[in-house]
Design a protein around this nucleic acid. Sequence first.
DNA 1: CACTAGATGCTCT
DNA 2: GAGCATCTAGTGA
Length: 192
Amino acid sequence: MDTLERLLGGPAPEVAPRLLGAYVVHGGVTIELTEVEAYAGTGDPASHAYRGPTPRTEVMFGPPAHVYVYFVYGMHWAINLVCHAEGSAGAVLLRAGNVVDGVARARERRGDVPAHRLASGPGNLASALGVDRALGGTRIGDRLAVRAGVPREHESGPRVGVAAAAEVPWRFWLPGEASVSAYRRHQPHRRR
DNA sequence: CACTAGATGCTCT
DNA sequence: GAGCATCTAGTGA
């Protein structure tokens, strides 16, 4: 497990690009990561952990190599890998990837979409893997597995859709991958 | 192609 | 109750 510690331990902005090309396995599906974002905990206004621990975010304040799962916009789950040491709350959001094994299984969950859209976007990625709140707080290697990939050239830029620290370039992706999201600025929500 | 409105429910104030 | 680390279908060009 030394390899896993080396891959996942450290400041989120350093761990995030290391995860590009790595493999995530859950629910009979394997995904090769093409896009991730770093969230640096209490020092990062865009992080869910910014204002300190809450029932939802306390996983991030625990030891690294655990899974933080959250629910957004009434219908989507998103997966984070906790990487900071206990007491600090940094994590990496898994935004997109290529399904390299278990395509049929992923398609059962995602429907009849083009291959590059099976796991494009945090909600779709979690859906393809069959991940929901039940995975939250589990240790990596327990139910969700992560394997290192081959290091690759990557690009970086501002994180998608965040209201705070909108200019911080902590999104990392593999260039030329169709699964990577187009950048979108945060947009305030209308209500009726 | 680009752009946007609406769905939907959890979490914290 | 307000805001949200989203996604898709729909419109218009």
